[in-house]
Amino acid sequence: MSDKPVDKMSFEEAMAALEAVVGQLERGDVPLEESIKLYERGAELKKRCEAKLKEAEEKVAAITLGEDGQPTGTKPVEGL
């Protein structure tokens, strides 16, 4: 398990770490106390992945397209 703080991870790092956590939990060979820690870390990683996806969606939503369908710039996203 990586010691890197979850809030410093890229989407890809958090997703890979989450997949590793899920794999360990699915095997079922982890002691109960460690399983609880893994579950808590998994919840943090899931939250990070969701936040990074939301950021990406907001960036995509902010791209404006011209009449030819090509990006012409960006516009502010409401609520940011």
Score class of each variant (00 low, 15 high):
Lys75Met: 07
Lys54Ser: 06
Val21Pro: 00
Glu12Ile: 07
Ala17Arg: 06
Ile36Arg: 12
Gly73Asn: 02
Gly42Pro: 02
Glu78Arg: 14
Ala16Gln: 15
Tyr39Gly: 01
Lys47Val: 03
Pro76Glu: 12
Pro71Asn: 09
Pro31Gln: 01
Ile63Gln: 05
Ile36Cys: 03
Gly79Arg: 09
Ala17Ser: 11
Tyr39His: 06
Lys54Trp: 07
Met9His: 01
Lys75Asp: 02
Glu50Asn: 10
Glu19Met: 09
Glu44Phe: 09
Ala20Asp: 12
Arg48Met: 07
Glu55Pro: 00
Ala51Thr: 10
Ser10Asn: 02
Leu65Pro: 02
Arg27Trp: 02
Arg27Gly: 10
Asp29Gly: 08
Lys47Arg: 10
Gln24Tyr: 08
Ala14Cys: 10
Val60Lys: 10
Glu55Ile: 03
Arg27Asn: 11
Lys4Val: 15
Glu34Trp: 03
Lys37His: 05
Gly79Thr: 08
Gly79Pro: 08
Cys49Met: 14
Ile36Gly: 01
Glu58Pro: 00
Lys37Asp: 07
Asp68Glu: 12
Val6His: 09
Pro5Cys: 12
Ala16Leu: 14
Lys52Val: 07
Asp29Lys: 14
Gln70Lys: 14
Asp68Phe: 01
Lys8Asp: 11
Lys59Phe: 06
Ser2Asn: 06
Gly23Asn: 14
Asp7Val: 11
Leu53Gln: 12
Ala61Glu: 14
Lys52Pro: 00
Asp68Gln: 06
Asp68Tyr: 02
Glu57Ala: 06
Thr74Gln: 15
Lys37Val: 08
Glu78Gln: 12
Lys52Ile: 06
Gly66Ile: 02
Leu53Asn: 10
Glu33Asp: 13
Gly23Val: 04
Glu78Lys: 15
Lys37Gly: 03
Glu13Gln: 15
Lys47Cys: 00
Ser35Cys: 13
Met9Lys: 05
Ala56Pro: 00
Gln24Pro: 00
Leu65Arg: 13
Tyr39Met: 04
Ser35Glu: 11
Ile63Gly: 03
Met9Phe: 03
Pro76Asn: 12
Glu34Val: 11
Thr74Pro: 01
Glu67Trp: 07
Cys49Asp: 01
Tyr39Leu: 08
Val6Leu: 07
Ile63Asp: 04
Ala43Lys: 15
Gly28Lys: 05
Leu38Lys: 06
Leu80Glu: 15
Ala14Lys: 13
Glu34His: 09
Pro5Ile: 11
Gly23Ser: 12
Val6Tyr: 08
Cys49Val: 15
Lys8Ser: 07
Ser35Phe: 01
Gln70Pro: 00
Glu13His: 11
Glu34Tyr: 02
Pro76His: 09
Gly66Leu: 05
Pro71Arg: 10
Leu18Asn: 11
Lys59His: 08
Thr72Glu: 14
Glu19Trp: 05
Thr72Gln: 12
Ala20His: 11
Gly28Pro: 02
Ala62Glu: 03
Leu65Ser: 02
Val22Trp: 05
Met1Asn: 08
Pro76Met: 10
Ile63Lys: 01
Asp7Thr: 09
Ala56Glu: 11
Thr72Gly: 01
Glu67Lys: 15
